[in-house]
Design a protein around this nucleic acid. Structure first.
Length: 593
RNA sequence: GCGCUCAUAGCUCAGUGGAUCAGAGCAUCUGGCUUCGAACCAGAGGGUCGGGAGUUCAAAUCUCUCUGGGCGCGCCA
């Protein structure tokens, strides 16, 4: 089913096609929302661009274009204005028609892409033997959301947790265990993630300050590589314990991931180096096997290498990433790969993508995306830390969010004027507080532009007003409250329910609901979740105006019955859109709060 | 030194392949509940979009330059 915007775009494309001579490339009709209502709902500025292709004044072209548009079903009127703007006013009946169509559609008008593309989305990917911390929040939440949206558009998605389960940090850990914690050797499975964290910190400290220790630590990587039984036993226990810890958090967060750690590629690494050598792309430099790409320089202006085999014979992340991308494209059949990491790794991905293309693994039919996100900052605009200056553990962050949200509910509980919360049981409060707390954390992360750093603030994210997770859930529960009173199921409204849009707030709300599929299509391409949060916030605002006693219209109390049903239907469509939109954002709604 | 990135209202942030693009929330002020969920709504004030130059009919958006942050730059990921 076509959205109103799609119908307009197609009509423009057809008209433009007829206006241009053969052989001239057709410009994409850019239809955008107008900034001001008096200029209509949508506008096109294409006439100014066409003026260069057709040697006529833009205003004349605009009028010619308008005359050719076959949009009488969709638009009330189409005007030309200014230097050649085309302003389109949507016909209320076409809105009513479209909303009635999506009423019957569980997907609310979101179409499935005609061509299914197999995706591998790489996100979260923590280093093991350490607890997950606030730095893993954005990649994990964003990755889950992007996966959900792309899946919703009908594509197949493998969500891959490329965990750091090999390499230097395990060498460090092993060396530290052998030297300082021999008790671990016999029963490594008895230690929990906080122990591992402690071992790691000790090891890291020594690794950075003690060259002899670092040397031995590197030897332990080789030991591991050679399948030494003791080393493997400790390694396996530590990996299992770390993954158990990660998945406990993923479960709370509603995140699904398949673990395919770096160790998975071990056997392939020598083959990768061989392949690069054979193709003449790798050379040995200062004892290390390197690939030099044009255009990259180091501090001293020398060519910057990608090291694929270290001088001590070990491999590092570039080689593993290469093995992984080769596997994903050639073995798993991925045609689009998305990596979600912090922006500091941008140059690595740029080089590594370039190399994947040069080798020929990633052909023209493969899309490679690196989504780099900014840092989560504390109030001092420095990376977010605990008061003591330590790293904020993800587990603590989540629990604090839930706890704060519960405290806010209990506060409401003590409010004698608020009869609703008071009737909740302790279990109910905990359940709601958990969902609200998680919604607050996730939403505050998702509503910012990915590329920018943002300042973390409990008070802001838990605020019930403004563009926050709790506000969105509140907006949803309000509608659920209306539905309960009316005795209706939002998902099963009778298809013969009348829909008549008359009041300005009804029309404004209907227009927002109608945009949903366009927004999802946009996010599926741009991979910017904050576009979706902005939309949902606007939808919730439109609903509040519609439902306002002064500005809006009565719903439950309205007469005649057909009007009441029509308005209830608008409530249902709003609620369904909020719920579906929030679910795509990995946020669970609550029925009341 | 080279490269990338950011600078928008008092604060936190959207918008950034042009026009009808100066926006939202918070904070401040004004108005609206004898309960259709006011955890809300309506409105006001507040910014020469870091400075400068250029391209264009049109620049917060593109180019150049300057200033000031952040980050990356050979055996970490």
């Amino acid at each position: 089913m076509k959205s109103i915007l799609q119908a307009i775009k197609e009509a423009f494309a057809t008209a433009i096609n007829a206006m241009l001579p053969e052989g001239v490339e057709r410009p994409v009709p850019q239809i955008i929302e107008t900034a001001e209502k008096k200029f209509g709902d949508y506008q096109s500025n294409i006439a100014m661009g066409l003026a260069r292709l057709i040697k006529k004044p833009p205003r004349e072209i605009a009028q010619d274009l308008v005359n050719r548009l076959k949009l009488s079903d969709v638009c009330e009127k189409i005007e030309t204005a200014g230097p050649g703007f085309i302003n389109l006013f949507i016909k209320t009946e076409s809105l009513e028609r479209f909303l009635k169509t999506i009423q019957a559609d569980p997907r609310l008008g979101v179409t499935v892409d005609p061509e299914i593309v197999h995706h591998v989305i790489d996100f979260s990917s923590p280093n093991l033997a350490k607890e997950m911390h606030v730095g893993h929040l954005r990649t994990t939440v964003t990755g889950e959301v992007i996966s959900r949206i792309i899946e919703f558009k009908g594509h197949t998605v493998e969500r891959v947790n490329h965990v750091g389960d090999w390499g230097t940090q395990f060498g460090m850990l092993l060396q530290n265990i052998f030297e300082n914690h021999p008790d671990v050797i016999d029963a490594p499975q008895n230690f929990v993630v906080s122990d591992l964290e402690k071992f790691y910190k000790e090891a890291k400290q020594r690794f950075d300050n003690d060259a002899a220790f670092a040397e031995k630590a590197r030897d332990k990587v080789v030991l591991l590589q050679s399948r030494d039984a003791t080393a493997l036993k400790i390694w396996r226990a530590f990996v299992n314990e770390s993954l158990r810890h990660c998945h406990a958090l993923y479960k709370i967060m509603g995140v699904t991931l398949k673990d395919v750690g770096e160790s998975f590629y071990n056997d392939r690494l020598p083959l990768i180096v061989e392949e690069l050598k054979n193709k003449g792309l790798a050379v040995t430099d200062q004892g290390a096997v390197c690939v030099f790409l044009d255009g990259y320089k180091n501090r001293d202006g020398e060519p910057l290498p990608m090291i694929i085999k270290k001088s001590d014979g070990g491999y590092n992340y570039t080689t593993t990433d290469l093995a992984a991308i080769r596997h994903r494209i050639l073995d798993l059949g991925a045609r689009r790969l998305i990596y979600i990491t912090d922006i500091r790794q941008a140059q690595h991905f740029e080089m590594f993508f370039k190399l994947a293309r040069i080798i020929g693994w990633a052909g023209h039919d493969v899309t490679l995306n690196h989504i780099g996100y900014g840092m989560v900052l504390g109030p001092d605009k420095k990376p977010f830390k605990t008061r003591e200056g330590g790293t904020v553990r993800l587990k603590d962050l989540i629990h604090e969010g839930i706890e704060r949200s519960r405290a806010l509910m209990l506060e409401g509980n003590a409010d004698t004027e608020n009869t609703r919360v008071r009737s909740f049981s302790a279990e109910k409060i905990l359940d709601i507080a958990t969902k609200v707390g998680l919604a607050a954390i996730k939403y505050s992360d998702l509503c910012h532009n990915l590329a920018s750093d943002y300042v973390f603030s409990w008070d802001k994210m838990l605020a019930m007003d403004g563009n926050t997770g709790p506000y969105m859930l509140y907006a949803y529960t309000r509608i659920m409250g209306i539905g309960r009173k009316a005795g209706i199921n939002i998902n099963h409204t009778p298809l013969d329910t009348p829909l008549v849009l008359a009041h300005p707030t009804e029309i404004a709300l209907a227009k927002e609901i109608a945009r949903f599929s366009d927004v999802i299509d946009d996010v599926a391409i741009t991979l910017k979740p904050n576009t979706l949060t902005d939309y949902l916030y606007g939808l919730a605002k439109a609903f509040s105006s519609f439902y306002d006693k002064k500005q809006g219209v009565p719903v439950l109390d309205s007469q005649p019955e057909s009007t009441r049903q029509s308005r209830l239907l608008l409530c249902c469509l709003t609620a369904r859109t909020l719920k579906l939109g929030l679910n795509l954002l990995s946020i669970d709604v609550v029925e009341e709060m």
